[in-house]
């Protein structure tokens, strides 16, 4: 086993261990308040307004392939879609989900169907509300633009894997005076969305969306574990840098 696999395994075991420990410790405790992020406060307000105004919510899931390493962002998008469908079930218009990958489109339909079945509102389910907008990045954007402008959408959640072309969706939403929260796992997209979206999320904030929307212990525990692992990485990096600095001074080679 090479060193990368060993490091990966250590983080995996640490992650599983911490997640199980925190989950069993906290399962009977009340849900803790998370640190305030203005984007999520605005999102909650936009969700409420959409229901009150009889407008639709649009969840754009991006074009992540569920079999690739960027599939995790798609899973976050699906969890968000589940919660959005629950929250908007009191409204007149069910949410619409667009995706740039066939598997993701089917999973979005499946998420909507299972959510409506669970909350006893199966009549709200329409498979057309979870659709493939286009199979290539620009085809996806071209297919999603009409959804934002013609389907009475008042809030857009762009959560998944996007390229910088996601800025075109934010611009169209801006023209429609619609709210936009955007988060991508791709670096070029994060820069473009920071400039164009009303509420951009940077870096790992993408993975905090379900915790802030769902408020269930498992997502909060996951967020907590993520924070701890980040501090572990920071510690390892700092210690490594110190060693790299002092080893030549002590007469040894760089580690």
């Amino acid at each position: 086993m090479n060193i990368n696999a060993v490091i990966g395994l250590v983080f995996l075991v640490l992650g599983v261990g911490l997640m199980l420990i925190f989950f069993f410790v906290r399962r009977n405790q009340p849900v803790r308040a998370l640190r305030s992020i203005s984007a999520f406060q605005h999102l909650r307000r936009a969700l409420g307004l959409a229901v009150e105004d009889g407008k639709r919510l649009h969840v754009s899931l991006g074009q992540a392939n569920i079999l690739n390493s960027n599939g995790a962002s798609a899973l976050v998008g699906l969890s968000t879609l589940e919660r959005v469908a629950q929250l908007s079930s009191l409204g007149d218009r069910p949410p619409v989900a667009t995706s740039g990958d066939g598997t993701l489109a089917i999973l979005s339909q499946d998420t909507l169907r299972s959510t409506y079945r669970r909350i006893g509102a199966f009549e709200m389910y329409n498979p057309d509300r979870g659709r493939l907008a286009g199979p290539t990045p620009f085809a996806y954007i071209a297919g999603t633009l009409p959804v934002i402008s013609r389907e009475q959408v008042s809030a857009n959640l762009l959560i998944g894997n996007f390229g910088p072309e996601g800025a075109l969706l934010c611009e169209r939403a801006e023209q429609q005076s619609a709210f936009t929260l955007a988060a991508s796992d791709a670096l070029p997209a994060q820069a473009a969305l920071y400039a164009s979206a009303q509420e951009p999320l940077i870096g790992e904030e993408l993975f905090a969306v379900p915790a802030y929307l769902q408020g269930t212990p498992v997502y909060q525990v996951s967020l907590h574990v993520q924070d701890i692992l980040r501090w572990v990485v920071v510690g390892v990096l700092v210690i490594g840098a110190i060693f790299q600095f002092i080893m030549p001074l002590l007469g040894g080679g760089a580690p």
Binding site: F23, L75, D110, T111, L206, F207, Y219, Q226
Partner: peptide, 25 residues
């Protein structure tokens, strides 16, 4: 930023592996 995303992906994957998050019906 990529380290943050990698850790987020790890915990999202672990939720699925532990059966705590199920994006399928």
């Amino acid at each position: 930023i990529l380290l943050g995303i990698a850790l987020g992906s790890l915990t999202a994957g672990l939720r699925i592996l532990l059966g705590a998050d199920r994006p399928y019906s």
